[in-house]
Design a protein around this nucleic acid. Sequence first.
RNA 1: GCCCCCGUAGCUCAGUUGGAUAGAGCAACGCUUUCCUAAAGCGUAGGUCGCAGGUUCGAACCCUGCCGGGGGUACCA
Length: 662
Amino acid sequence: MSLPRAYIMNILAELRSRFEPVLTEWTDDPSSVIEMLKASQDAKFGDYQANFAMPLAARIPELKPRDLATQIVEKVDLSDFCEPLEVAGPGFINIKLKQDWLNTQTQNLVADERLGVAAAEAPQKVVVDFSAPNVAKPMHVGHLRSTVIGDANYRVLKFLGHDVVGDNHIGDWGTQFGMIIFGYKHFLNEAAFEEAPVTELARLYRLVNQLSDYHATKNAIPKKEEDINQQAEKLQSLESSADLTDKKIQKQIKKLKADLGESQAELTSQQESLTELEANEDLHSKAIAFPEIARLAREETARLHSGDAENIELWERFLPQCLDAIQTVYDRLNIHFDMTLGESFYQPLLADVVADLKQKGLAKESQGAICVFMQGIEAPFIVQKQDGAFTYATTDLATIKYRVEELKADRVLYVVDSRQSEHFKLLFATVKEWGYSDLELQHVSFGTVLGKNKRPYKTRSGDTVGLESLLDESIESAYQIVSENDDAKPDGPELNDAERRQIAEVVGLGGIKYADLKHNRDSDYVFDLDKMLANKGDTATYMQYAYARVCGIFRKGQIDRSALRDHQAALTLVDESERALALQINRYSEILESVATEARPNYLTNYLFELSNLFSTFYNNCHVLKAEEEAVKTSRLLLCDLTARIVEHGLSLLGIGTCERM
RNA sequence: GCCCCCGUAGCUCAGUUGGAUAGAGCAACGCUUUCCUAAAGCGUAGGUCGCAGGUUCGAACCCUGCCGGGGGUACCA
């Protein structure tokens, strides 16, 4: 029999709700300062701390912060679960949980399948828009962040009881299809297409792209040379005539020099790429045969969009194959979408969107295009181009309309590169004016994945790194580590090859995902496979190892975990390391709440790392199976069980697996 | 030109919205295995939080200026 859920308290929420009414005596809006009650940064200040006495006292001239803190403490009654409150320093209120209460509270978690995490009282309909690759191009590292961060947010929101829809807004209608269609019509290798259609389509895309780039670069070179000459002249005249002691002039010169150097480097690399292509006879002859290839490809796109029968037929033939190809990547990563409504799905709705915007006076003609202008933003939001074609802005608006009217969304998360923040600023502003003011829109932006050279992650030849080969490499490298470690075990290896392979898969994929998720999503981060799989430090492996160690204890002790839970034995925290571990276990729900509101999975990775860390200390200090007394042993087993369940569950919310042995 | 982001230990990064002596991992140095997996634990060392002002009881965080890096900027998505 499980205990009623009411026995399990979200400690932070409870503390805040006890303090909040008391604060009304000093402020009209206690909710604005209540968030200053939080977990202590240092265990010596107790378990939780409240810092709001200082700012509140600052508003009242004759009141000292310390005195105010004392007054607050006198009015709040927490005696049922906390030690007497302490006022420290300039007015901090330190809160420490009663030992007996923490014992019972932790014990109650054992019987709770949700590990103390209550389902949302007011569930929202949330659309998480993530991954969104261009289907005709092979996936690369750049797609990893959106996919992995989006998936983690999706899982967390869902666990918290929200009605979540994962939508893969794929690029299935853009210019890349024009390129493929053009390639198919002119350069197809039929045998290759029969053999592996997607590989051949990817080759055609690359080929057409390469040839268009060649001409674009070639045409741009004279202008580039002219620019360089102008820059050089300007620099010279500045250096010879102007006042060199003027700081502004100095700065200008410096900047000009830097620009000039950059332009020259660019020119050189462009010339090199031209020479490289020309050295390949086959490519060069194709380039000569189709000087207008970029325009021709665009025309194929235009024909597709205007309903040309042949191009539609090709598109309908290619699309399922492209979808299958990306699906194999999602299967490997264990990523699931509830719907995949790409750009093409919204095409029939676009004309109405523009008409509606015009009718409401939001959109108007400017330089031949139909634009929405938002106050305070210089750039226009172009919903229809000069040539009559719609843009991704139009598609995004239609998508929102659909999500509100058909899916009944309350909130939409866009897990998209930070470089598109200006687009989303315009999009959200427009949407508000357009009439969907209740909808909560959030650009879950993230930084660029860099190589060790701090430039965007590319191969030496400048290509993006294919995602699949990266996964292979990671798993293979994990296999080496798993094997080495198993071979080094004191009592000899424990794993057969199939087990090693299976563990390598979990460790290899987990390492890549964890590395991405542990960083604050806003910042760029350096992609370093060796660090991701390192057999030490803050990696997925560390948490997976903690989990495997618990499993080892239960295996060695021949303990049946579900029987242990049903037994309702007493949990008593004795050692300091046990108490610290238990406190962290009790904080799981707090952390998930903060992940959900800010869409920041790194709060969870950080929490799990700390949890595993506390477990390792406990594991070292407190022997479980050889505990002095039976009651202590049982109590510690309960603690192990809870730790393992949260590690496993937390990692699963990040899309990362665990193994019983490793 | 205009707009946005970043600058924290040798390296890679946290820092929960203004709180107590700025943290972690890696690398370095020292210690711990008759005992549940040492993929671990414990400890030492390492900092002018880019620089200079300002706001206040208190600033890595807010404001101003400067230095350095990245990104975006009218018809690609």
